[in-house]
Design a binder for these strands. Structure first.
Length: 771
RNA sequence: GGGCCGAUGGUCUAGCCUGGUAGGAUACCCCCCUGACACGGGGGUGGUCGAGAGUUCAAAUCUCUCUCGGCCCA
């Protein structure tokens, strides 16, 4: 009867041995046979230290998806990747070494970025491994590898040849800090305190002034017209008349346009290239000639006259001062202005005309709506984020970036006639340093070429991840077996970028949806519901937490705390208390380890009761797992194991298992049932807490890993769960009685067992020592 | 301005779809080492379920309006 498990608590140190065992035995290897289940794992971006605890939690949950599928009998492809292209590492590198990218040798700069990425990546891989992810670490991929970039470029070339890509000179969102064009999807809006300057403009004839309010007076030099609403009677006399721009002393004509709101400011609006997206639309509508006021360095150009060379903000300060001194200012309001900010550099963007490459997306919107409507979203509410985004797409996708650390755009231009040429797909090209693979210009027969300097928007890389993991154009048999993939897990803030662009690109290339399911996670916030940020000092580093409490504790916390798609709160204290459940499970197992597994033909009433509760539990867990909602099985299992199985059933049958006053048949019924329940619980818990369950499983039930087991099925026991309430209430009553009588729990007591519990009488008498 | 989500004891949360005694965790108070577990066990204090109206025999749950928060889009 001595437990074979000696220790009285689960020691997370054991996880390391188990991890080693999994790795040595390669228990998670994938083969493209039978029913396959493919996870389009998000490759995390190593952008800084520490890694976000919310992200660690996401990956723990993605692993639960993999394990759930595996235990449901599927062959699971669970790739691991690291996203390494893009701005954050460039900014990180610039800061770390105090250098500017565009002033540094390109090859040298790339080298520095790579080193930074390697460091940060190592920490992420370590966390993912120690969390027990059952993914393919042996072949983990990087989006900046030659192989991955080859795919990005090849798919681009494919689209180029289909005529999906074009070059256009148009006003574009420009982030002057990072020196690159950005897509609408990369813009965020913030309310920033701004001065709304009410300026006096002089009309020549009739002689009068009109007031124009603007937050961008530094763009006066780029003003091409003043618009008023056609129904605004205050201005009917000035329509078509010339107005003098203050300070600049240039004349423009007053025009009518319905977009001028009578109620906003004075009702008259100055139209400049370009204060905002509205200006862009007006320039197009009214066929105005653009005046470039802001340069690519974020400073005013020559047309700004006295303000040339000043940064936009400085120019604004200065011109406000001059306007005031020269009597052009009627008043200045301090307002909060909704300002477009670059998501990456967190500075206000400018709208500047530049020549960039575009990928057509407007004509795909309907098709994507159709595909999107067929994808199962978990939770369904987040499908709305995609649908809303699709509604608001108004321009094609600008895909070229003036940055270094990205996949190079594989284009060479004829030196003579400037004709662009793309090379053959299937190889990795670096036009900024490689010599041209094209022999002769198709247009003018010239043999001299210049390589493209720009790189792709990083979403061009990320958006082909489902194609990369399924070996698109690499292994036809593998691809046809694994694509479309099964599930895309990702966080909700990149639905309009990663999720959307992936559908767009994969649809264009394969005509199909990239996955059948999308599983959208919320953010990890701090214990009070606030976003974690370094400046607030509420960041929790996941690594020490995992080391302290163990991966299983972290995982069980994640499962029992997170409702799919909703934001979740992270606190160390909560994680700590989760550990208690694992100790409970450990000690239940420790108790059972003293009893050899037996068969039983004649279960007692208590056995039938708990087996019927077990059936209910299995059904509940399977329901949760089928929806990839781990909250359901985690809480159901904890509730069952702790508050029914351990607290009531084990106490009831303990005497029977030790077999004093019981027959052998009765004893075997108890021991059989104890093991039946525990082994089922371990299997049901295995996707959530893979370490402790595997350890206990191998200690008690098998030489083989629990992770090759299939989920247990309900056995269809007669429904005796109706007794649960009575049993637990009766037990409570006895405990209370003993307490109020100042008796110890082992003391005898006289108490009547209710008629309805008669069939449990023998167990109950032994449990409470009822005489 | 539009959209999505949320509001349940001090704190966090389940229940809401499918209306019928609001469950759990944590914190707090009291008691207990009982043949697996003090990383444990037992008992207890604490909630008019954001506000208002409607439907109903009955509303945390359904409908409407509003308030406050979070996120997203213009």
């Amino acid at each position: 009867m001595e437990p074979t498990i000696k220790e009285t608590a689960w020691d997370p140190e054991i996880e390391k041995q188990i991890l080693q065992q999994w790795q040595d035995n390669k228990i998670y290897d994938f083969s493209p046979e039978g029913q396959v289940f493919v996870i389009d794992t998000p490759p995390p971006y190593p952008s800084g230290r520490p890694w976000h605890i919310g992200a660690a939690s996401h990956y723990a949950q993605i692993d639960m998806i993999a394990r759930t599928a595996r235990m449901s009998g599927k062959n699971v492809l669970f790739p691991i990747g690291i996203d390494r292209n893009g701005l954050p590492v460039e900014i990180y590198t610039e800061k770390k070494y105090g250098i500017r990218m565009h002033e540094t040798d390109r090859a040298e700069f790339l080298k520095l970025c790579e080193t930074a990425l390697d460091d940060l990546e190592a920490e992420m891989i370590q966390i993912m491994k120690s969390l027990g992810l059952s993914g393919n670490f042996a072949e983990y991929y990087r989006t900046d590898s030659e192989k991955y970039r080859t795919l990005t470029q090849s798919t681009f070339i494919e689209m180029w040849k289909q005529g999906q890509v074009y070059l256009a000179n148009r006003p574009n969102n420009y982030d002057w800090v990072t020196g690159t064009t950005i897509a609408d999807a990369e813009i965020i809006y913030e309310d920033i305190p701004t001065k709304l300057v009410h300026m006096k403009f002089q009309v020549k004839d009739p002689k009068r002034t009109i007031i124009i309010a603007s937050t961008r007076p530094e763009l006066l030099c780029a003003c091409q017209t003043i618009i008023v609403n056609p129904e605004d009677e205050r201005y009917t006399d000035v329509i078509g008349k010339k107005v003098v721009i203050p300070i600049i002393n240039r004349e423009v004509e007053v025009k009518v346009h319905p977009s001028a709101e009578k109620e906003f400011g004075s009702g008259a609006v100055m139209v400049c290239s370009y204060g905002d997206q509205n200006d862009v639309a007006l320039f197009r509508d009214l066929k105005l000639e653009e005046i470039a006021a802001v340069g690519m360095n974020g400073r005013m150009k020559e047309v700004a006259g006295a303000y040339v060379g000043l940064k936009v903000k400085q120019a604004r300060e200065k011109i406000i001062e001059d306007l005031t001194n020269q009597g052009f200012v009627e008043k200045i309001d301090n307002i909060n202005h909704r300002t477009p900010i670059s998501e990456r550099s967190k500075t206000a963007i400018e709208i500047i005309s530049m020549e960039e490459y575009y990928l057509k997306q407007k004509d795909s919107v309907d098709k994507i709506k159709e595909l999107g409507s067929k994808i199962n979203f978990h939770p369904p509410m987040h499908k709305q984020i995609l649908m809303n985004w699709l509604e608001s797409i108004s321009i094609d996708w600008p895909i070229s970036r003036r940055r270094f650390y990205g996949t190079e755009i594989p284009i060479w231009y004829c030196k003579k006639c400037n004709e662009p040429h793309v090379p053959e797909p299937g190889k990795y090209y670096r036009p900024w340093k490689d010599s041209s693979p094209i022999a002769k210009c198709t247009k003018c027969d010239s043999t001299e070429f210049v390589g493209e300097q720009r790189t792709f928007d990083t979403w061009m890389d990320s958006s082909v991840s489902p194609l990369y993991i399924t070996k698109y154009k690499q292994d036809e048999a593998f691809f046809s077996k694994t694509y479309p993939t099964t599930i895309r897990p990702q966080s909700k803030d990149i639905v309009r970028t990663w999720l959307y662009y992936t559908i767009l690109r994969c649809e264009k290339l394969t005509g199909k949806t990239p996955w059948t399911d999308a599983w959208i996670m919320g953010y990890g916030v701090d214990e009070h519901g606030a976003k974690m940020s370094k400046s607030k000092g509420n960041v929790i580093d996941p690594l020490p937490v995992i080391q302290k409490f163990g991966a299983d504790t972290f995982r069980f916390w994640s499962a029992s705390e997170i409702n799919v798609g909703y934001d979740f709160r992270c606190s160390e204290q909560k994680i700590e208390t989760t550990k208690k459940f694992l100790s409970k499970l450990w000690n239940v197992s420790r108790f059972l380890s003293g009893f050899n597994i037996v068969e039983s033909t004649k279960p007692s009433a208590s056995d039938k009761w708990i087996l019927s509760e077990l059936d209910k539990l299995i059904i509940e867990c399977k329901k949760g797992y089928s929806e990839f909602n781990f909250f359901i099985p985690a809480t159901a299992l904890r509730e069952f194991t702790w508050n029914l199985f351990a607290a009531h059933y084990i106490e009831m049958v303990k005497g029977r298992a030790y077999s004093s006053d019981f027959t052998e048949e009765e004893r075997d019924g108890a021991i059989y049932t104890l093991h039946k329940v525990l082994s089922s619980v371990l299997i049901l818990l295995a996707p959530i807490t893979p370490f402790i369950t595997d350890y206990l499983w191998q200690n008690l039930y098998s030489k083989n890993t629990i992770h090759h087991e299939k989920f247990v099925e309900p056995e269809g026991h007669e429904d005796w769960t109706k007794y649960t309430k009575e049993i637990t209430e009766f037990n409570s009553e006895v405990w209370n009685k003993k307490k109020s009588a100042n008796l110890s729990l082992k003391d005898t007591i006289e108490i009547a067992i209710p008629q309805s519990l008669e069939m449990f009488a023998k167990d109950l008498k032994a449990m409470h020592n009822i005489v």
